[in-house]
Simulated assay, not measured.
Amino acid sequence: MTLAERLAQAMARIPVADLLTGDGDILPETAATPTAAAVLVPVTDRTEPGLVLTQRTEHLRNHAGQIAFPGGRADPGDVDLVATALREAEEEIGLSPHAVTVVGLADRYRTVTGFEVTPVLGVIPPDLTLYPSEAEVANLFEVPLAYVLDPAHHRRVSAPWRGQTRHFYEILWNDRRIWGATAAMIVNLSRRLQWAA
């Protein structure tokens, strides 16, 4: 069975715990209709699979400097959210859509910045040469999938935010801090997959 087939089979299972739907503890009930967006969750096809992540540049308007999946808002020309994720991954890290075996859509997550993000799970060949966009991506790196999916590494923390207390997840790996929406989507994948990489 291929890695993509194993992931697809695992995605069909019922989650072991409740899924995170968004930054609900700080979203006003009157919040406007969210903007549709999608990210690619690129899993490298290795004996021990990895997960490719980016660190955003410091000058971006949204989520500057944060660790994220490649992705962004849906464009009118995108036929669906898979197309959005693949287009954004090509723009941000030079990943050809033809190199991605799309496994399927994961669980949507609504951010405090007004996006409803659909993660698109995909498998990519190992050791591809990727080209980060200087305008958006400060650097990219790969983390072991088994490490980030392990609930032992999912820490729920809190911090003040605009006069409120914001609760969110973070995952620490080496000198990297994965937090916020990206960490929440990884937590959801962990709960959905129930799968040891």
Rank of each mutant, 00 (worst) to 15 (best):
M1A: 11
T2D: 15
E5P: 06
L7D: 07
A10V: 06
A12M: 05
R13Y: 03
P15S: 11
V16P: 04
D18Q: 12
D18H: 02
L19M: 12
L20R: 09
T21A: 13
G22R: 01
D25T: 04
I26S: 09
L27I: 15
P28Q: 08
E29T: 07
A32M: 02
A32W: 03
P34M: 07
V39Q: 10
V41A: 15
P42I: 03
P42V: 10
V43S: 00
R46E: 15
E48S: 15
E48V: 12
R56T: 05
T57K: 03
T57L: 04
E58S: 15
E58D: 13
E58W: 14
E58C: 09
H59D: 09
R61D: 09
N62P: 05
N62M: 11
H63A: 13
G65L: 12
A68S: 11
F69I: 10
F69P: 00
P70H: 01
P70F: 06
R73Y: 06
A74G: 04
D75M: 12
D78R: 06
D78A: 07
D78I: 05
L81E: 02
L81G: 06
T84W: 05
A85Q: 10
L86W: 06
L86Q: 03
E91K: 14
E91H: 12
E91N: 14
E92T: 06
I93N: 11
G94C: 07
H98R: 15
A99D: 11
T101S: 12
V102M: 11
V102R: 09
L105Y: 09
A106P: 00
T113D: 02
F115M: 10
F115P: 13
V120M: 11
V120L: 11
L121S: 10
I124D: 02
I124F: 08
P126S: 04
D127S: 12
D127P: 01
L128M: 00
L128G: 09
L130W: 08
S133Y: 05
A135L: 04
A138T: 06
F141D: 07
P144N: 11
A146M: 06
V148G: 04
H154D: 00
H154N: 00
V157F: 14
P160I: 05
R162W: 04
R166D: 15
R166L: 15
E170Y: 09
E170P: 02
L172K: 13
W173M: 08
N174C: 10
N174S: 14
D175S: 13
R176L: 11
R176E: 15
R177H: 13
I178Y: 05
T182W: 01
V187M: 06
N188L: 07
Q194K: 14
W195A: 11
A197W: 04
